[in-house]
Write a protein that binds this DNA or RNA. Sequence first.
DNA 1: TGCGGCTATTG
DNA 2: CACAATAGCCGCAG
Length: 583
Amino acid sequence: MVTEAHGVAGALSAAGVGRGDPVAVAHAAGVGVALVAPTGLAVSTGDEEAAEAVRRVEDELRPRWVWWSGDTAAALVASGTRVAACWDIAAVHRLVFGGWRADPGRVWATLQGLPLAGLPATRGQPDLFSSLDDDGGSADEPVRPDGHLRPDWAGGGWSASPERLVRWAELAAEVARRQQARIAAMADHPRLAATARVESAAELLCAEMSADGLPLDRAAAEAIIGGFVGPRPRTEREAAEQRGRRDAEVLRHAPAGSDFDLRSPGQVKSLLRRIGVEVPDTRAWRLEARRDEHPLVDALLTWRKAERVATTFGYGWLDEHLGGDGRLRGEWSGSDGAAGRMTASAGLHNMPADLRGGVAAEDGHVLVRADLGQIEPRVLAAVSGDRDLARATAEDDMYSPVARQLDVDRATAKVAVLGAMYGQTTGHGAHALRRLQMAYPVAMAYLDDADRAGQTSRDLRTYGGRLIPMGSTNANEVSDTVARSRAAARGRYGRNAMVQGAAAELFKLWAVTVRARGAALDARIVLCLHDELLVHTPVEHGEVVARLLDDCLQEAAHRWAPDRSVRFVADISVLRRWSEAKD
DNA sequence: TGCGGCTATTG
DNA sequence: CACAATAGCCGCAG
């Protein structure tokens, strides 16, 4: 057992640990870290030395860190340590086995083939019976006689000691090996191991983005918000007065003496009926078409926009998420529960475009923005192996050659392609859709198969190997039409998940490549937006980073789809403010 | 107090 | 208003 930071790196090096070799790490505040290498060497350090030990091992050996979940990544980032590569057991579990829950007890039971129904309750959901049961095992051993992990270990609620940290890291190392063996045995999905490494790196990126935040110019953001809802109210009374004034701007167009709550969709519908505007619902796109019929409709649409800012993206939003350092922080997750796109809280993924003027580079820095052009149809061409559709990706705008091929105009071709990927079957697209079937039968068959899988509850895997669970058909207690429409919805979901999920895989590979190559230039990814990256970097590196973003895209595309038959394009610009981007 | 429905925003 | 997400408020059930 080595306890000093400089000794840890030396000991691991002497054990033969080199670049890319696995080193499992477990951490606990107040105790430190345990590092376990394949040769069986176990090392632990005290708290002060822990971060330094990890840093030294990273600098000198550059291993692939193995850990249970992104919690460890977050702890490392918080201690000022950024590592290059990892194997994130929870992220890999979600990738290979689907769903979102990936706590150690569930991961372990899945790999052991133990029934998940017998999963012991973990921390947060205390189970009186199992915790009081005498299972005949030792509390010092994480695996119970019945094969499941002890809930106190699996839930992370155990009282840590150096010995237990070592045992927990050893177990992580073993689980990672079992995951790799399982992946290697899945010969039908040869890209799964590579995808698992990218998913793991994406978790590192998420931990860093969560810690770094998005640079936001508070004064500029407050000016934009003020333009919608007025100056920051100093009291609750002032806030109520502002709300009242906004409401009055709409209600003055209403019949005298009427009293309607504009925040209640049902009452808004009644109000609209009173002024002669009959609508099935009050969504903006529906009201937009009838804006000219009555001044109240126009006033209501303006009110909605201001109300949105006031309630969700106003001063309260800044107070809650914008730090004193000018960084807006939310929690980033490497994959959602469905097709595997990244998600973010604090409104980072749905901030109104009007507020982009507030997103600004810090002094001496620039933002480099890059967004992929037409990523989903290009990804469809790649994953389906449709050579004719792949040929269309040679052009910057692939809808033009598709339109020529279908002998329709570009707008029609675009709607048809998007409709095929999303599952739209009605409307004007139907005619073009038939032509699409004729022109690109391979791509269309790929989508149709995914659709059938969804309809029949057959699980799918994306190009990169992510499991798309299709659940079970709930056939009882519903009418025939409802059952049919639900089946159709599952079909659309499956169809889209294969494209959206594969696009997310390429996007993440691009992002983690930029993360790796950009580190030396102090280029930090501050926002991932499904097909768009925002990178914060010193002004003198702006142009180099812009070129780097395209280089990384080409590298990622080649690693992801090695035959190079599909071209991927990005629009890249160097900005001071996000709002300067022209799209 | 929890949850489904409605609405808005983003890709 | 197809596919995905986060988030807020209203109305209703418990």
